[in-house]
Amino acid sequence: MLSSLRRRLEQARTAADAGVTLIELVVAMTLSTIIAAMTLTLFLKVNDTTQTSTDRAINTGQARNILQAWTSYLHVADGPTYGNSSHRFEWITDSDVLFHADLANRSTSTPNAVGAPSTVWLRLTGRRLIEERFASGTTSPSVCRILADNVTASPLFKAYDTTYAAMTGQNLGSPMVTGGTGCTNLPASVTQTDLSAVSTLQNVARIEIDFTITDTRGKRAVPFFSAADVPTLVGATS
């Protein structure tokens, strides 16, 4: 009897060491697959969230720099002759504006002396925001910056008159030069020749800037907006 009991214990021990059954193996593989899928999904979600935060930070940084710079230029918009509102803006379209501004025109040797304003050309060309600045009377840019890509706007620029009514549909001139997607020289003259536009442009008191930047993956588009009042000039207007 003792021998029989030992035999049964040995058989039970052998059965225990025989491994897992097919059902147990299938269940284990299924659970492993589910856990792996959950882990991968969590990893992708965390990675996407991190990338989204990075994209938003980059786009916001770009937009902040653009809006700060462009509104600061508009705040010192001036005529090609200091203090004269005539031809302060040469044209304003939905995606293109050229104007003159008091940038880098202060004398370093004579107190309160000012030189001719610079010419500033801001535009959206081929989904790219471009800024060019020209010293008075020159045709090659002294500053040329490609500020952002993957940009859309409808419109980028919107003008308002002295009563802050939108100047939609009014004659704000046509560009005297076509801008490329990179640095573009000006022709010998960018003086607006449409006298009706010249007259209307003197009434511009505010410019709104409105655009959207899409991240490099093309997944998220973030809108940005600002506005700048242009100074009231007391010089001659004709």
Rank of each mutant, 00 (worst) to 15 (best):
S4L: 09
L9W: 06
Q11I: 03
R13F: 06
T14F: 02
T21G: 10
L22N: 05
I23Y: 10
V26H: 13
A28P: 06
L31C: 08
S32F: 12
T33E: 07
T39I: 14
F43V: 15
V46K: 08
N47V: 00
D48H: 06
T49K: 06
T50F: 08
T52Y: 08
S53Y: 09
T54E: 14
D55W: 12
T60I: 06
A63V: 08
A77F: 07
A77Y: 07
G79F: 14
Y82K: 10
Y82H: 11
S85V: 12
W91T: 01
I92P: 02
I92Q: 01
A101T: 06
D102G: 07
T108Q: 05
S109K: 14
A113H: 13
R123L: 12
T125D: 03
T125Q: 10
L129Y: 09
R133K: 03
A135D: 13
S136Y: 15
G137C: 04
T138S: 12
T138C: 02
T139D: 13
S142L: 10
C144K: 05
R145F: 07
I146T: 11
A148M: 07
A148P: 10
V151R: 12
K158R: 15
T162Q: 00
T163L: 07
Y164Q: 08
A166E: 14
M167V: 03
T168L: 07
Q170F: 04
G173D: 10
S174Q: 15
S174P: 09
M176L: 11
T178A: 15
T178F: 05
G179V: 08
T181A: 10
C183M: 13
T184W: 01
V190N: 07
V190A: 02
S196L: 05
A197Y: 01
V198D: 01
V198C: 00
L201G: 10
V204C: 04
A205Y: 04
F211Q: 12
F211I: 11
D215M: 01
G218Q: 01
A221G: 00
P223V: 02
A227I: 03
A227L: 04
D229E: 00
T232C: 00
G235L: 08
G235N: 11
